[in-house]
Design a protein around this nucleic acid. Structure first.
Lengths: 193, 193
DNA sequence: CACAATACGGAAGTAAGGTTCCGTTTGTCA
DNA sequence: TGACAAACGGAACCTTACTTCCGTATTGTG
């Protein structure tokens, strides 16, 4: 984008530090209040003024977008690790999905915020989401080729079911792990369970 | 509640008519804008002033609560009809769930509004939800007794998975029916599919 | 038909929270 | 160490919606 002028001054140290602080504070704030978390609160937790927050992230949506990126980068790592794994391919798919759900569940309320995030926030993470989808597709292809996974399911559907599971994480008393397991059982090839 | 004085004057005709209009208008507005639908807009669609809207529903939350009631009353009818049906009990459970999802999908964006509704709105529909749950439990018991449905699932989990499916309905390009079918396959007794 | 009683209309009030602005402070480099 | 650019702080601003209030209109009854 703006890397045309390659010889630019390095970023000031406080800026780098503060960006990290903001992201951390935002995680905490969104975890506590969901989407309702307030910019003032995020800034306070980071020990900074709102003005500073806004110089790092021009809008609340941009901040949420950055958080989405971080989270999906984590999940992408899991999926990539799955590519290397030996063993029954459908089992690998299931483990990756369990892992991904785990990442979301680690921080349920922040998850809540992501679910309510606008299109714009998601667009900002578009490249990572695409890569994640491509990786999942490879894993799915393997499992389907092995005959252990149902055929009418692809990487686009992964987002759908993970969104469904995530949506249920924030309700007390609901057991999202069972929800996920039911879904995973449903993903098995007919007769393979 | 306030039916102690049984001999009260009948409601004025315009009041009854307007209440119905508001509910209809609210459906349309929520369908178009989700939770973001505005009270002013609902009033305008009903051809009424905001003041009138507020005399019928004291807060936005109360209005949403009334809508939730209406919707779940419909689903409750489906579940009750399921009680009468002959045939394989797990198939009945599946059909009722498909029907319930259909009711939600009829009006996806309104569904969106319900998902984002606060606790208070849900509490107002508490009695219907309880009855729905009790009815579903009967259907589930039958299916589990027949050995065709997985045993680690009860009526409380119904809300969870339906919420998961509903969360998924409002995204273009996602096939919530497949999502539901995967879940239903996962609900079968192990080895029964 | 007139009179209560009930309901309606919609402008104005209010609260909440995202965003801006500009004076002050901090970091970097010579 | 001094000077300039880059960052910061946070009070004030502005928009957006929900809600209230009270004068006006409608309904139903004797």
């Amino acid at each position: 984008m703006n890397n045309i002028a390659v010889t630019q001054k390095p970023e000031r140290a406080d800026k780098t530090r503060n960006r990290a602080r903001i992201l951390e504070a935002a995680s905490a704030a969104f975890a506590e209040f969901g989407v309702e978390a307030q910019m003032d609160d995020v800034a306070a937790r980071a020990g900074l003024g709102v003005g500073t927050l806004y110089r790092h992230f021009a809008t609340k949506e941009a901040l949420v977008g950055a958080m989405i990126r971080e989270r999906f980068a984590l999940i992408l790592d899991l999926a990539r690790a799955g590519l290397e794994r030996e063993g029954e391919p459908f089992a690998v798919v299931k483990d990756v999905l369990r892992g991904g759900a785990g990442v979301c569940a680690d921080d349920v309320a922040a998850q809540d915020a992501l679910m309510a995030a606008g299109d714009e926030a998601w667009r900002r993470a578009g490249d990572i989401l695409e890569e994640l989808q491509a990786t999942m597709q490879v894993l799915i292809d393997r499992a389907q080729a092995a005959g252990t996974m149902r055929l009418d399911f692809d990487s686009a559907d992964v987002s759908m079911i993970m969104c469904g599971v995530s949506a249920t994480m924030s309700v007390d008393g609901w057991d999202w792990q069972r929800h996920l397991e039911i879904l995973l059982d449903g993903l098995a090839a007919p007769g393979a369970r």
